[in-house]
Structure formats: C-alpha cells, structure tokens
Write a protein that binds this DNA or RNA. Structure first.
Length: 560
RNA sequence: GGGCCCAUAGCUCAGAGGAUAGAGCUCUUGCCUUCUAAGCAAGAUGUCGCAGGUUCGAUUCCUGCUGGGCCCGCCA
C-alpha cells in the first residue's frame, strides 16, 4: 500500500519534471480498495482531483501519470485507466502475499502504530455519581470509553482511563438523608419520603445494614453524613464491580472532594478572572462563556456562596491539562449535549487549543425484549441496570452490542436477540471463526502434522479467496488508525464481521472442493494454508482484543 | 422558540465527494461419511426523508423544510 503510494508520487514528480503536468502543489495521493474486485486491487482518483488545477480532462492526466509508471514490476502486475479517470492497480500476487510475512512477524503487534507519537491522552468515562447502580446507558458509555482507550493505545497514544467521582455537594447529602429516612421507616416510624430522595430498593438494603451497626449519632447532621458516606462508598464499590464484570477498568479515580480540599475550584475561578473571563453580577460569579460562542454566560459561584458543579468541572479540566495531558476526551451521555459548548469555552478561556479537547456524546440505549420496549420509568429501574443485563447476556455479548453501532446513533438493545446464537448476534460468529481456525490446528496436531512456519512457500496460495483475504488483512492497520482518529471503535466491529464472513465462506468451500481443504496430503500445501489461517487468526484476535472481547479456541455449545 | 443527534431494503443498521449503494434478520431453494451446520451457496426488495445550492461528479458537503430523539436551572 505504502509502496504503491510512493510509486504514484514518483510518477507525479516525473510528470512535473518533464513538463507533462504543471503540478504547482503536489496533491495527496489517496488509495482505496475498489468495491468492484475487477477494477483492481487498489485505485486512486488523483487524476480527477487534478482536473481543475491542470485544466485538462481527468483521463488525459491519468494517461500522463500512468505513462510514468513502470509495469510490470516486482510490485505491480498491471495499471489501467477506467471510468471518469480512475487509475486502477493490479498488485503482483507474490508481493501481496508478503503481507502475511509481516502479520506473522508482528503477531499481537500487527495493527499497532506510532500515529499518536506517544502523546498523553486522558479518556474520562462513566463518571457516574455513587447514588445508585449503573444502568444500561452507563454501560454503553463504559464499554465505548474502554474500547476507545484500547484503540488509542494501539494507535500509539499513552492513555489514562479516568473516572471522575462526584462525592461532594448536595447529592451526597440527599443520599444520606434517603438512607436515614429508610432507617427510620424500618424502625417503625411513619415518615414522608420526599420525591427528590433516591427511591430505589437498594437504599432500603443499605439502611438495614447501617441499622445493624447499632450506631448512635450525636445529631441528625452527623447521621446524614455517616449514611451518605457509607452508602456512597458501598454503591461505588458495586459500580466498580459491575464495570469489572464488563471488562472495564480505570487507571485513576478522581474525587471531586479533592478539588475542594486543595482549593482548586477557587483557584480555577481566579485563574479565569485573571484572564478576563469572569464577572461578578447579581451576587454571583459568572463565567463569560458567550465570548466563546456559548449561548449564555454560566454561573460559577452561586449567590448562596456555593460553587456550581460546572465550576468544579472547570477546575477538574484545568487539573487535567496541568497534569500534562496533550489531549483530553470526555465521554458523556447525550443528555449532556448542552454542556459541550460551555466546557469547550472554558478550555479555550484557560488558554488551551480547543483541538486538545473532545466531548463524545453517547446516544441513549433502548432496552427491548422480543421487540417490545422495556419502559425506562423509575419504577422499572431494576430491569435497566447494567448488572441484570450482564447476568442475562454475558460480558462479550454485552460489549459487542454496545460496540456494533456508531456511538451517535441510538441503540436498540434487544435482550432476546442478544441471547440468540444466530447471525443476529454477530459476536458468536466472529468468535466462531477464531475457534474454527484453532480447531483446524488441533486437528493437524492430532494428525501428527508439524507446522513449522519458518519455511512457508507462499506461492502455493493461489486461490482468489486467499489473495482477497490477504489483501483484506493488509487493510487492518490503516483501519485501526482511522478508527482511532475518528474515535469510532465500531469500525473495528464491522471489520471483524467482514473478516469472519470471508473466512467462513472460504472455509466452507472445503466441504466440496478439495483444493480448498486446509489439511492435505501435501505437507507444503498444508503448511501454506495453515500459515494463512494463522494470520487470519492473529488479526481476528488482535481485533477482538481491541474491543475487549475474548477469542476462544472452542465454542462450547450453550444448548440446554 | 433555540441548540445537538438521527432519517439508507419490510425490520435492525453500516457506508461514503466518485465506478453497479452494502450486511444481518425475514422469505424461497439447495448443502453435514470430510477441517465445528453457532456454518455455506443461490435468489428478492431501494425516490439513500423532501426541496434548493456547491462540484467535472452529491445518497455523502452547505442551506431550508418535514418527521423522531435528547437538551435548554444561580441542579448535579
């Protein structure tokens, strides 16, 4: 791929030198794999891009370029001009097959790149308040953030996964009060349970636990504080456990209370004031976010003397950059969309390049069962917890479903489909491909075939599917870079599905056509076929790893 | 009312400034003495929401409209 690109670039240089083309500035040569296989292995549209600046028809330009390319060569088998001015390349099979050597050599590192140049990236995700269990929406954000982190690491960034823990302020008090009230209820007291208190059944369980401790509180305030702290810690532990069962972990838990203790919130406000973006008005302190395109200014410190959540968040983001991150990504639920402009404004006001910050919005999840929407009302809270979902469908399925859609499209998560073992549930299909390959190796081993990949004759791989799959494998590293750049891990899901599909089709042909069987009477042929399989397996495994999915060597039937 | 996201096959969704717009499900028909049938092959379906604009070329980019979702507090 890179070789082809430089061949075209060299041809362009030559055109310029001998005056065939003006080429005031050299265009970027973009290569793509044509959808139509008979168009060639690779194609470029440079000639069409140049049509305007050169003032010549695209086909004429294409002819000029092609006349400066040497064919056939080690790399190229043929070059042709087609359509409006596409230049199509046929790659020498022998050259294309070198991809396999490359994949095999790199193994688990195949697909990794240095694109990120070791830049420090922080991905902040989940950051759910410790006031109740995670729901499926959190789950989607969690799995997305985790997969994105893996993706960025693979692309050469140094990634820190962080969870911002909102352990200060009103809500912890509300949590404490909720628990205390339930305790009183359990002691037979008749209490009015306010609507703004946490309604979930888990509050009652915690209340019972606290009661069992037989604590004596000096004051109601002290009781609320204790209950809030106790419940917060307990709920947070459960959140961490839920995440872990989802394969999601964080490197850093950052506590909001730390910001207050270190006076960082006040510092951040003063920092902004010094830069001229803060004003005192109506007894409150305001951030002039409208200077950066926000629709209105935002309060940092309320007239009651307390800082807003936003002020703390600014302090937190200041802290992120102070800690030396080059690039900060926040993964938020779509309901926080309105917060993006003000956060961007704050980042800019603090003197950072807005390009160093991205807020990714995760659209909501509709939980379904057999085509029926499960109501998201608070009453049915237990149906929408991540925990129940995990218990019902398992980690891999759960992760894959969250990662098989673009994050900015709403997701229908049908539990019945997720439990099925058909193509409606592609995670099994992909894992099956990996397992099938393992199974072939096991069979080879049982037959006493030794697979020494040091001396493989690649020229034995001549079937069209073998060349096509090899080419497809070769696209994987560019895909990883693209997905990392675009923050779109779902592209990996689609790639894996396509790879699995190509493999399954190739595999099944062996049922009918001996030429397609892997384990043959000819040891050299067997070795070459298995080498290809090994490489397919490596890429499947690497991709599954990126998504945090297991790559099993066998599929254990889940039939009852 | 304003902002953000979405609109592509009957359903769930990919795709992308370029060649004949894809996949799965569904429906029909075949394929297990062979390396796992959680599989494969073949066949069907499209006004890429509507209207303009930019472009050699738009389903893709821009504007407006329509429909659906989310948001719009000195809450967190």
């Amino acid at each position: 791929m890179i070789q082809i690109k430089s061949i075209v670039e060299a041809a362009l240089e030559d055109c310029k030198k001998d005056g065939t083309l003006k080429l005031e500035l050299l265009p970027e040569v973009l290569l793509e794999t044509p959808k139509q296989a008979d168009h060639g292995d690779l194609s470029t549209n440079v000639a069409m891009v140049l049509a305007k600046s050169e003032g010549k028809p695209p086909r004429k330009i294409a002819e000029a370029i092609v006349s400066h390319i040497k064919v056939p060569s080690d790399v190229l088998a043929a070059v042709s001009i087609a359509g409006a001015g596409f230049i199509n390349f046929k790659i020498n099979p022998g050259f294309a097959l070198n991809t396999l050597t490359e994949i095999f050599k790199q193994g688990p590192d195949f697909g990794k790149s240095k694109m990120g140049g070791g830049k420090k990236v922080q991905v902040e995700f989940v950051s759910a308040n410790p006031t109740g269990p995670l729901h499926v929406g959190h789950g989607r954000g969690a799995v997305y953030g985790d997969a994105l982190s893996r993706l960025l690491s693979a692309a050469g960034y140094k990634v820190t996964k962080e969870y911002y823990l909102n352990d200060a302020g009103v809500q912890m008090q509300t949590l404490g009060r909720s628990v205390l009230l339930r305790m009183k209820e359990l002691q037979g007291e008749k209490v009015e349970f306010p609507e703004n208190c946490y309604q979930g059944a888990y509050i009652k369980d915690i209340a019972a636990e606290v009661l069992a401790k037989n604590k004596n509180f000096g004051s109601e305030e002290e009781a609320i504080k204790f209950c809030g702290d106790y419940a917060g810690a307990k709920i947070h532990d459960e959140i961490v456990a839920d995440l872990k069962d989802c394969g999601v972990t964080h490197d850093v838990y950052y506590y909001e209370s730390t910001l207050h203790k270190k006076n960082l919130v006040a510092d951040a406000v003063e920092f902004l004031r010094k830069r001229g973006y803060v004003e005192d008005r109506e007894g409150a302190i305001w951030f002039l976010s409208t200077k950066f395109g926000d629709e209105k200014d935002r309060v940092l410190k309320k007239s009651d003397g307390f800082y807003t959540y936003f002020a703390a968040d600014i302090a937190y983001h200041k802290e992120k950059f102070d800690r030396g991150f080059d690039y900060v990504i926040d993964v938020w639920g779509a309901d926080h969309a309105g917060h993006v402009p003000r956060m961007k404004a704050a980042i800019e006001a603090m003197g950072h390049d807005p390009k160093q910050f991205d807020a990714v919005l995760i659209q909501l999840v509709n939980l379904m069962r057999g085509g029926e929407l499960i109501s998201m009302s608070t009453r049915s809270a237990q149906y929408e917890t991540l925990r129940t979902l995990l218990n019902e469908v398992g980690k891999d399925v759960c992760r894959y479903f969250f990662l098989m859609r673009s994050h900015d499209a709403q997701l229908d998560f049908d539990i019945e489909l997720a439990k099925s073992q058909t193509m409606e549930n592609p995670v099994y299909y992909i894992q099956y491909a990996h397992a099938r390959i393992a199974s072939v190796f096991a069979k080879a081993h049982a037959n006493g075939v030794s697979l020494d990949y040091n001396h493989v004759d690649l020229s034995l791989l001549t079937l069209p599917e073998e060349l096509a799959i090899t080419r497809f494998l070769g696209e994987y590293p560019a895909l990883v870079e693209e997905a990392a750049k675009e923050l779109t891990p779902h592209k990996i899901s689609f790639y894996l599905l396509e790879l699995a599909r190509r493999f399954q089709s190739y595999y099944t042909k062996g049922n009918k056509e001996p030429a397609y069987r892997f384990l043959t009477d000819d040891p050299k042929m067997t070795l070459a076929k298995c080498y290809l399989l090994k490489n397919i397996q490596i890429v499947l495994k690497n991709g599954l790893d990126l998504l945090g999915l297991s790559a099993p060597d066998r599929m254990d039937s889940q039939e009852e």
